[in-house]
Amino acid sequence: MSNEKHEKFLPSPAVHRAGPQHSLWSIISAISFYWFASLSVVFLNKAILSNSENKFPYPLFVTLFQLVVALVLLVVSGHLGKRNRLLSMVPPFEFDLDIARSVAPLSVVYVLMLTLNNLCLQLVEVTFYQVARSLSIFFNILFTYLMLRQGTSSGAMIACSIVVLGFFVGSYGETNFSWPGLLAGVGSSIFVALYGIYVKKTLSIVDNNQWRLLHYNTLISIFLLTPIVVFSGELQEMWREVYFLGDLSFWALMSFTGVMGFMINTAMFLQIKYTTALTNTISGTAKSCVQTLMAMVFYQNPISAMNGFGIFLSLFGSGLYSWVRYAEMQRK
């Protein structure tokens, strides 16, 4: 599964009240683990889909395979969690048909979010990836008003305006511009925003336990995506065109990427547990900045001055929006 989309598994953390003080080593370890898992997913998926010597341009199959890996890990973690304190946060796997029916709309949104995210990552440069997907803030504000009838503060609207401006400036200045990649990024942003809203609406069905929700969501998503992969023609094309399907190293890479996608959930849980809401917010924004800088160094993508300014505006606006929302939570 792909990077930012996996971070949406968990709902936004509540502001931490007075609680136990954790050691500096625990805090640093939690943040480092989150950064490692999140950055790994982005660059590994990019390598699989478009940048590796063994190019594998099948985003639907990649998404399905990584969901299967996540489901296996959920089942195993839930079983081991009965005896292992480290995994006790993951409940035993369960399936109730009535709950599944209620979770299904969320899973439809989730499948579209993951698929479009991987397609965007395949079609655009990693340096432009954050810009292509930056409109999730705009759509979050829009859908929150349309679906939940909740307004947004002027500060958040200003931050959102900066993000939107960065999107247009960055898109116009992108050297290796791709309309399909841009549209996939916008589509992914739409479903990221919808996913966050549907998670909040669906959590009560599973007693506000995000891991139980993840059980149902992952399994249902596999059922939804499997026929799409079959009828898309990806399997037939893979069989004809891909000469390295028997290469164990390729499947090891695919499996490791799936493991990292699953680990983002644990990493987010630990980062929320061992840090404050503000640290969690700053960490996510800083990680996006580092991700863009790493892509510039690793891939040597040509970046025009306008494109660079657009990337800066998108990252700055996203960070400002996170700060404004955090300050609002503190006041409440």
Rank of each mutant, 00 (worst) to 15 (best):
residue 175 T to Y: 14
residue 42 V to N: 00
residue 30 A to G: 07
residue 294 M to K: 01
residue 87 L to Y: 04
residue 17 R to D: 14
residue 71 L to C: 10
residue 226 T to A: 08
residue 115 T to D: 07
residue 20 P to S: 13
residue 287 K to H: 08
residue 110 Y to F: 15
residue 207 D to H: 00
residue 314 S to V: 15
residue 258 G to V: 08
residue 86 L to N: 10
residue 177 F to D: 00
residue 319 G to P: 12
residue 3 N to G: 12
residue 186 V to G: 14
residue 298 F to G: 06
residue 296 M to I: 14
residue 116 L to G: 01
residue 330 Q to W: 03
residue 37 A to I: 06
residue 37 A to C: 14
residue 47 A to G: 00
residue 214 L to S: 13
residue 171 S to N: 10
residue 283 S to K: 04
residue 133 R to P: 00
residue 116 L to T: 04
residue 280 N to T: 10
residue 308 G to Q: 02
residue 202 T to Y: 04
residue 103 V to H: 02
residue 258 G to H: 06
residue 140 N to E: 00
residue 310 G to T: 04
residue 251 W to G: 03
residue 314 S to N: 13
residue 289 C to F: 15
residue 154 S to H: 03
residue 67 L to Q: 11
residue 79 H to A: 15
residue 2 S to H: 11
residue 309 F to I: 01
residue 137 I to S: 08
residue 299 Y to L: 15
residue 140 N to V: 10
residue 197 I to V: 09
residue 159 A to Q: 09
residue 135 L to N: 05
residue 295 A to C: 11
residue 249 S to Y: 01
residue 236 Q to V: 15
residue 107 S to K: 09
residue 132 A to Q: 06
residue 169 V to A: 14
residue 244 F to S: 07
residue 291 Q to R: 11
residue 57 P to F: 10
residue 215 H to C: 00
residue 15 V to A: 10
residue 111 V to W: 13
residue 184 A to G: 02
residue 209 N to Y: 04
residue 219 L to V: 06
residue 293 L to Q: 04
residue 290 V to I: 08
residue 141 I to W: 14
residue 179 W to T: 12
residue 262 F to M: 05
residue 244 F to W: 07
residue 144 T to G: 14
residue 296 M to R: 14
residue 103 V to P: 04
residue 268 M to C: 05
residue 260 M to V: 11
residue 14 A to F: 03
residue 143 F to C: 08
residue 91 P to V: 11
residue 252 A to D: 00
residue 30 A to S: 07
residue 55 K to D: 02
residue 150 Q to S: 11
residue 19 G to Y: 03
residue 216 Y to L: 00
residue 324 V to R: 01
residue 171 S to V: 06
residue 102 S to F: 11
residue 264 I to E: 07
residue 97 L to A: 09
residue 148 L to G: 00
residue 78 G to A: 06
residue 224 L to V: 09
residue 88 S to W: 03
residue 86 L to V: 13
residue 110 Y to S: 03
residue 168 F to R: 15
residue 149 R to W: 12
residue 30 A to N: 03
residue 332 K to T: 09
residue 192 V to S: 09
residue 44 L to V: 15
residue 21 Q to K: 08
residue 257 T to S: 12
residue 96 D to M: 05
residue 209 N to M: 04
residue 176 N to T: 15
residue 21 Q to V: 02
residue 183 L to N: 05
residue 104 A to Q: 02
residue 242 V to Y: 01
residue 63 T to C: 08
residue 323 W to G: 00
residue 72 V to R: 07
residue 9 F to V: 13
residue 290 V to C: 06
residue 175 T to H: 12
residue 262 F to K: 12
residue 128 F to G: 02
residue 62 V to F: 08
residue 285 T to R: 03
residue 16 H to I: 09
residue 207 D to F: 02
residue 237 E to F: 03
residue 307 N to T: 09
residue 286 A to C: 09
residue 206 V to E: 06
residue 326 Y to C: 00
residue 275 T to A: 01
residue 249 S to G: 04
residue 191 F to D: 06
residue 282 I to Q: 13
residue 213 L to W: 07
residue 75 V to Y: 05
residue 327 A to N: 07
residue 307 N to P: 01
residue 242 V to C: 04
residue 153 S to H: 01
residue 166 G to Q: 12
